[in-house]
């Protein structure tokens, strides 16, 4: 093997050999892998790098947005009217529900107060838009257009209209990466709404499937049960819908049942998601309202989170 001739760099001013440079860069790679994985020291570096790549994401997203805009500005009248009617109907139903929820929330707040429980109630929320870019086909992650600038932080809960969406994995300056509840590296603390049975819903990597691997064969679950967040783990506030049980398979010889669920949020179709800030509720008499958001929020925002202005 002619090592000399396979080195195509100029003879003068060569610098270190190919092998040496490879070795050096490989060492750096392994170094940052260890730092990033073991200790998570590189979070701020990641933040900066993500912000650096953001313009590219934006460029990819723009034509799709423009297409949407063109589509909506030339939408024909009948379709708009249909859509309008549908929305009006939905709003009526939602308002009805809201009225009931208001009283329930108030009751709930009083009960929590009695127990001096500190389970978080969504305090403030913000609508974020999902950028239309594919990050990795085998992982369920998306990019949203709000970042650390808007107060987004790592580990923040993200909700969709119909259920829990995921949590913030990395927050760049103007964008954040969100890991979906169906990602195979994600687990959601849940409880069965019917009887309060707690478990963990683990993502499978399939967009319409969660598994609950830690339910024993004699546990009380059945197909159709609603799963809501249990509030344990401190990421998701309690009581938000996560999914619906689709399959329960019991084999008496096994310890654990095979339980699968379908996420309620339309993870692959929703374009807008809700970021929520939920601080543990301080005992109500000791904390006078400091700002407008927290004054109105505990009663209304938990029932129907509204975008912060």
């Amino acid at each position: 093997m002619a090592t000399l001739s396979s080195d195509s760099r100029p003879i003068i001013g060569r610098g270190p050999s190919l092998g040496a440079r490879f070795f050096f860069l490989a060492l750096i790679s392994v170094g940052i892998m260890v730092l990033d994985h073991r200790q998570g020291h590189l979070d701020s570096l990641r933040q900066w790098l993500l912000s650096g790549v953001y313009p590219v994401f934006r460029v990819v997203d723009v034509p799709f947005n423009a297409w949407d805009w063109v589509g909506s500005s030339f939408a024909d009248r009948t379709r708009l009217r249909e859509e309008n009617d549908k929305l009006a109907a939905e709003l009526r139903v939602a308002n009805l529900r809201l009225q009931r929820l208001e009283s329930l929330t108030e009751e709930n707040r009083q009960l929590r107060d009695l127990r001096t429980a500190s389970a978080g109630i969504a305090d403030r929320s913000l609508i974020a838009e999902i950028l239309r870019v594919d990050l990795d086909p085998f992982r369920h992650r998306v990019l949203i257009n709000k970042g650390a600038n808007a107060g987004v932080y790592k580990g923040q809960a993200v909700l969709a209209a119909d259920g829990v969406f995921g949590q913030v994995d990395r927050a760049g300056l103007g964008a954040a990466a969100v890991i979906l509840i169906t990602d195979s590296e994600h687990a959601t603390p849940v409880q069965v709404n019917r009887n309060g049975l707690r478990s963990i819903a683990v993502g499978t990597g399939e967009i319409a499937k969660l598994t609950l691997p830690f339910l024993t064969v004699d546990s009380d679950v059945k197909v159709g049960d609603l799963l809501v967040t249990s509030g344990l783990g401190g990421i998701y506030p309690a009581g938000y819908p996560v999914g619906e049980i689709t399959k329960v398979e019991r084999d008496a010889a096994e310890t654990f049942a095979i339980v699968e669920a379908k996420p309620l949020a339309r993870l692959d179709r929703d374009r807008e998601v809700l970021l929520i800030w939920s601080e543990p509720v301080p005992s109500l008499d000791s904390a006078p309202a400091t700002d407008a958001a927290s004054a109105t929020a505990p009663s209304t925002a938990a029932a129907a989170p509204k975008p912060a202005p």
């Binding site: 790679s29 392994v30 990641r46 990050l135 990795d136 992982r139 992650r141 990395r170």
Partner: peptide, 10 residues
């Protein structure tokens, strides 16, 4: 790495 959110350096 940055784009796909894997361990930095992978």
């Amino acid at each position: 790495d940055v784009v796909s959110g894997t361990v930095l350096g992978e």
